[in-house]
Design a protein around this nucleic acid. Structure first.
Length: 154
DNA sequence: GCCAACGTTGGC
DNA sequence: GCCAACGTTGGC
């Protein structure tokens, strides 16, 4: 079972949106970056995903979700009213994918980016590198364990 | 709101 | 295929 980290903007999709409706899948759409999309396509049902809040006041990892539906064409790319509309995406060969995820847990406290950066063994994780813009990234088993250990023991 | 880092676009 | 211009991301 692979592990991932997904960036979300909490104003749009926060850990509470998962937690408030634990049985309702959250459609994770709007990823418009090829490298991130390719990682999305590797996600399998049941894979666990760190939910990371970015571009907001409290930046960091807020909790965990799991993949409930693997990649399928992101409907938003064809919706002219959506901010994620992409006029150049061919109908017969859609560029962008969405996945669906379900709530797993919310951390007792958000694990801030500073706290994440202080965890040893994450040097290879794109998240902690300067200028990183990747919105979906794989997390190795060792990285996952190291982060989780700190997240639940505070 | 600023701005450095980055990905994408498009002319050549 | 190069690379400058441009738009976006995301921490601060």
């Amino acid at each position: 079972m692979a592990h991932w980290l997904a960036k979300t903007e909490p104003e749009e999709c926060s850990i509470d949106d998962f937690a408030n409706h634990p049985n309702k899948p959250v459609v994770w759409e709007g990823v418009r970056n090829y490298q991130a999309r390719n990682f999305m396509r590797q996600m399998r049902e049941g894979d666990k995903v760190f939910i990371y809040h970015s571009s907001c006041k409290l930046i960091g990892i807020a909790g965990i979700a799991r993949v409930s539906r693997t990649a399928y064409p992101d409907p938003a790319q064809f919706n002219q009213k959506s901010p994620y509309f992409d006029a150049k995406s061919p109908r017969d060969n859609p560029r962008w994918d969405a996945v669906e995820m379900l709530f797993v847990e919310k951390f007792p406290r958000l694990l801030s980016l500073d706290e994440v950066k202080a965890i040893p063994g994450l040097e290879a994780l794109p998240l902690v590198k300067q200028g990183n813009r990747l919105s979906v990234m794989p997390v190795s088993d060792a990285e996952w364990k190291a982060i989780l250990k700190v997240a639940v023991s505070r």
